[in-house]
Design a protein around this nucleic acid. Structure first.
Length: 867
DNA sequence: ATAGGGTTAG
């Protein structure tokens, strides 16, 4: 169809009127007087080919008495653009004089059909024949590269463009920007875009907005869009979908609404891409009503928009509505596509409806969608999340081609089910398979690292992510923050937090929990106050962190008021975790009676964690009677958990009730419960050195024991009194003291001081999980005394020292060493981490000591498996 | 007569 563009206006008014459309052009063909003119015939040929009437075009072409270059080129282009490449090639061979345009027309056709070998062969042949490729050639080839994500080929074209001085041509650069963006090289795309000196046109701007958006860089996409408007470049139906996707990705709902306004003013609202992007944006920004409104106003049933609607409903937790949307699609007899099934599978997965999920799997097979990667990815995800790792792996193994999403689905599935080690191994497998990670899998892996406290691994993933040039996302930053906090690197966690431009409740909570776990309860509370002041509402998890912080900072009054505010101010009903924290808090501050009262007041049934807190509180206050009650409950709730048996047994032994100790031990024996022997290990030069209590099997045992013997008197001098009250064995005092001195952790530390070079961090791992910190709080651990002593020595030499210590040191110091309290007031930080793992850093001899408690000795934590 | 940008899944 002729468009009234400038080129046509150049023709005589009469002709222009005559050939305005194909109908009149065809009519003209039948009038012999007109046909004589070659010029006019070419116009007709062009009109036919443009309207896709190839057969008629060929007829005219064959009938033409005289064919010039224009006629031949038009016919080749007509075949090439309609995908009839065999015919195009055949005709191409017959073209008497092949110009650049002839070559470009054929190359363009090959590129559109994704025929990479043919396209590049023609590209070389063209040069061989003495025709110079131009911006048209490169534009087509770059399009092909971006279509098939062929980075190397694209880079070759880039090199060629530089060599032939086409590297500032707006068409070529737009192609390059798009190609690099599609190949995930957003930095290269950005560089080329910024290096473009001339005024950039709207296509280039749109390509850049799309590039940012497709690379998961929503904020930059929005920024770029704003710059585009500031520059006065007009947006069109290509620009809006990209920026709307960006809004959806970063949940910038208010900006999305503004973009909607722009769209309405610009008149591009009718475009189906724009509309479906609008539906998606509203659905993802949890404005289902607006999404519905756009969807209902659509003239055609667009499956993309409907799919988006299902996803939006599921994300909002409205699974029923999502299914209703799916049913409506059926009623309207819409053709489902490979995006519909993932959405519906996701819906059933979040409803935990395995039966229906399986029937969708059947439907997928029935309708012939089982070969679609997208659909299989969703199946892997669904089965993995349901805990059916076997089914997930089965689908996974049957897939001929796997992408990041496939691997992510399986990895996330394993991580959700607590198989963190398996998740990390899969991640390594993915890297071996040559798949590059993206921000979704990175976030997932960092969370797994946090759970395993494999700091080295996490840091490597972080470094790799920085190197990849991918922009961070909120979820990556959140999991990074958590990972560092959980691994005891609270400064790094803080750094991540400070660098974040956007934060949500998860971010704030992660930092609150992080500070709390690292023994900086007061900082937790400060962060909480900042969060409230900033207008972010706390959630269930925030309060766990906050109450935990209060209990460990000894702020029982604040804790109680926060606990009250939970339901009263924010409408969050306290759960078992909150009660456990509160009982811990009351127990620590010597309010055992109140703890007992709270326990009795509870509406919900106390769980094991609550009883553990209570038992720990009883132990600290030496209340054997209540301890027995707590322990009995624990024996019922967790009969195979050794910890309560040990705690109670320790209390009996402290009270010199050796008969009861024996009774507990008999009970343990009869139930087949044994305490896992404690061991500590550390790594130097890729070798793991493991130590058990009083272990002399190490090659350097003599030196290690000598080092400890050197340390013990120094610690005693600093005020250390071995706390032997909880020793298990009914041995003499000296024996108990010795068993403490050669505790596995201290052996590891002594070894580390002998071998690790000054300035390098020392990391000690332990296998035993601290079920409750309170139980370990006071006294006992010589290791901490040792650190405190060294810190003390260090203080003498240096004015300022950043010291982080195990939090229970703080309690100890308060009770036993008054001058330490003074030190603390002077700003020396003494804190640590509690829970499953804890670290202590200190500036000991210029070294940083980190002490980590792992959940069992994992092969990943053991460096032999890492290397 | 030949070239460049867009929506849905983890």
């Amino acid at each position: 169809m002729f468009k009234s563009n400038s080129r046509i206006l150049k023709f005589p008014r009469k002709l222009n009127f005559r050939y305005r459309n194909v109908q009149s052009a065809c009519f003209v063909r039948k009038v012999p007087n007109f046909v004589q003119e070659k010029f006019n015939l070419n116009r007709v040929l062009n009109a036919l080919s443009k309207s896709g009437r190839i057969y008629e075009a060929r007829q005219l072409f064959d009938e033409m008495p005289e064919r010039d270059e224009f006629s031949w080129n038009t016919m080749v282009a007509a075949y090439a653009n309609s995908g009839r490449l065999a015919e195009a090639r055949k005709l191409f061979g017959q073209v008497p004089v092949k110009s650049s345009i002839t070559w470009n027309s054929l190359i363009s056709g090959c590129c559109q059909c994704g025929l990479k070998i043919e396209a590049f062969e023609l590209f070389w042949e063209m040069q061989f024949q003495g025709r110079k490729p131009n911006q048209y050639t490169m534009g087509s080839l770059l399009r092909l590269c971006s279509l098939l994500t062929m980075l190397r080929r694209g880079q070759q074209i880039h090199g060629y463009a530089v060599k032939t001085q086409f590297d500032l041509n707006v068409y070529v650069v737009t192609g390059l920007v798009d190609m690099y963006a599609k190949c995930m090289c957003i930095l290269e795309a950005e560089y080329l875009f910024n290096m473009m000196p001339e005024r950039k046109n709207h296509v280039m701007w749109s390509a850049m907005v799309a590039g940012y958006s497709q690379n998961g860089n929503g904020y930059k996409a929005i920024e770029c869009f704003q710059d585009m408007r500031t520059e006065g470049v007009e947006c069109n139906q290509f620009t809006f979908p990209s920026v709307l996707t960006a809004c959806a990705a970063v949940a910038a709902d208010s900006f999305g609404v503004q973009v909607h306004g722009c769209i309405v003013r610009s008149g591009f609202e009718a475009n189906v891409y724009v509309k479906s992007a609008l539906v998606d944006m509203y659905a993802k920004c949890s404005d289902l009503n607006s999404a519905w409104m756009v969807l209902e106003n659509m003239e055609v049933d667009d499956v993309v928009s409907w799919n988006s609607m299902i996803v939006g409903c599921v994300r909002q937790g409205c699974e029923e509505e999502a299914l209703a949307v799916f049913q409506k699609m059926h009623q309207r007899d819409m053709k489902l596509d490979e995006f519909t099934y993932p959405s519906v599978l996701n819906c059933f997965a979040s409803m935990k409806d395995m039966r229906n999920a399986r029937s969708i799997h059947c439907l997928i097979i029935k309708t012939g969608f089982e070969d679609y990667k997208l659909v299989n990815n969703a199946l892997v995800d669904m089965y993995a999340k349901q805990g059916s790792s076997d089914c997930a792996t089965q689908v996974f193994n049957h897939m001929p081609e796997k992408d990041v999403v496939t691997w992510t689905s399986l990895v996330t599935g394993y991580a959700c089910n607590g198989s963190y080690e398996e998740a990390l191994k899969l991640f390594c497998g993915m890297r071996t398979a040559g798949i590059y990670p993206d921000h979704v899998i990175v976030a997932s892996i960092l969370s797994a690292c946090a759970e395993l406290t494999v700091w080295e691994f996490g840091q490597q993933v972080h470094a790799n992510f920085i190197k990849s040039g991918l922009q961070s996302s909120l979820s990556v930053d959140n999991s990074l923050l958590s990972m560092y906090a959980k691994c005891g690197c609270i400064e790094h966690a803080r750094q991540v937090f400070d660098s974040m431009q956007v934060r949500n409740v998860i971010t704030w909570t992660a930092l609150i929990v992080g500070y709390a776990q690292n023994g900086k309860g007061r900082d937790s509370i400060q962060i909480y106050d900042e969060m409230i002041a900033g207008g972010t509402k706390p959630d269930y998890v925030t309060f766990i962190g906050l109450l935990f912080a209060c209990s460990h900072a000894g702020l029982s009054e604040s804790g109680c008021s926060y606990f009250e505010s939970m339901d009263k101010v924010y409408g969050i009903k306290p759960g078992p975790e909150h009660y456990a924290c509160m009982i811990d808090l009351l127990g620590r501050s010597g309010r055992l009676a109140e703890a007992e009262k709270l326990l009795n007041q509870m509406v919900l049934q106390p769980d094991a964690a609550i009883w553990k807190s209570f038992l720990a509180a009883c132990r600290v206050h030496g209340n054997l009677e209540l301890a027995v009650r707590a322990a009995k409950n624990l024996f019922e709730l967790e009969p195979m958990n050794a910890v309560p048996y040990i705690l109670l047994s320790n209390m009996y032994s402290a009270a010199n009730k050796w008969e009861d100790v024996a009774k507990i031990r008999r009970l343990m024996k009869s139930r087949g419960i044994s305490k896992e022997p404690g061991c500590s290990w550390m790594e130097t030069n890729s070798t793991v050195h493991t130590f058990m209590s009083e272990d002399r099997s190490h090659l350097k045992a003599a030196e290690i024991y000598a080092k400890i013997d050197e340390i013990i008197p120094l610690i005693k001098e600093a005020g250390y009194v071995p706390d032997i009250s909880f020793a298990l064995h009914d041995t003499d005092e000296k024996g108990k003291e010795l068993s403490l001195a050669y505790h596995s952790e201290k052996l590891a530390l002594a070894f580390a001081l002998l071998t690790v070079p000054p300035g390098a961090p020392i990391r000690i791992f332990k296998n035993l999980r601290k079920e409750n910190v309170h139980a370990e709080t006071i006294g006992r651990n010589v290791f901490n005394y040792y650190i405190s002593y060294l810190v003390f020595l260090r203080r003498m030499k240096q004015r300022w020292l950043p010291i982080k210590l195990l939090h229970f040191l703080f309690f100890f110091l308060q009770q036993h060493l008054k001058h330490w309290e003074a030190e603390r007031r002077k700003g020396v930080h003494i804190y640590g981490l509690v829970g499953r793992e804890y670290f202590a850093y200190c500036g000991v001899e210029g070294q940083c000591v980190q002490n980590s408690n792992c959940k069992g000795r994992t092969s990943l934590a053991a460096p032999s498996a890492i290397r």
